[in-house]
Amino acid sequence: MGDGIYWPTFFFLLFSALACGFALAVVFSRNVVRMAFYLVMSLASTAGLFFLAGEDFVGAMQLMIYVGGTLVLLIFGVMLTSQKQFVEMKTPAGQWIVGLVTGCALVALLWMAAFETPQWQPISRAEAEAVAVQPTATPIGVALTNGRVDQLDQPDETLRGGMSSYLLPFEIVSVHLLVVLIGAAYLARAKRRSPSAAAPG
């Protein structure tokens, strides 16, 4: 394909700018509804980054569960509580300054760490273009049902032993979701008895 623009990089820059820009907008916005909107945009751009990294399946899940489910839930919460005085809440300037200084320092530290670690540097364009596109759902599905397709092409034998199948987390997480569902339903539903009868504690 020659030496022209490497499109994945172009789209990486686009999506990362969107993700970071909207994440900053979440921090700096004072209106909670707009924050929610910016958050949606930021996380949707993150899903774009997932697609670019070749993880279609996780990207689709991010859109489906996170953006389409969790954030709708959050926005729902925002609306249920959106009285005028809560939509915009100010934080004292002193906290802002301390927070921003610490935040900038932390970002600088993490960036330095990322860009100075040799094994995290980009591979060459020829190598990247040689990486074969594979279906993404199949290996994930197999790993969730007790097998690892990548075990065979891992060159490092010490790492091969640590490639666990994800059957247990996959099954136990369903129990967790059930319990959490019970808990959320318990808290959200109206009380069944008169308040005077209950209330120990």
Partner: peptide, 11 residues
């Protein structure tokens, strides 16, 4: 724009 990005950029 002409070279791929790496893990560091994602990080």
């Amino acid at each position: 724009l002409t070279e791929p990005v790496g893990v560091a950029h994602y990080m």
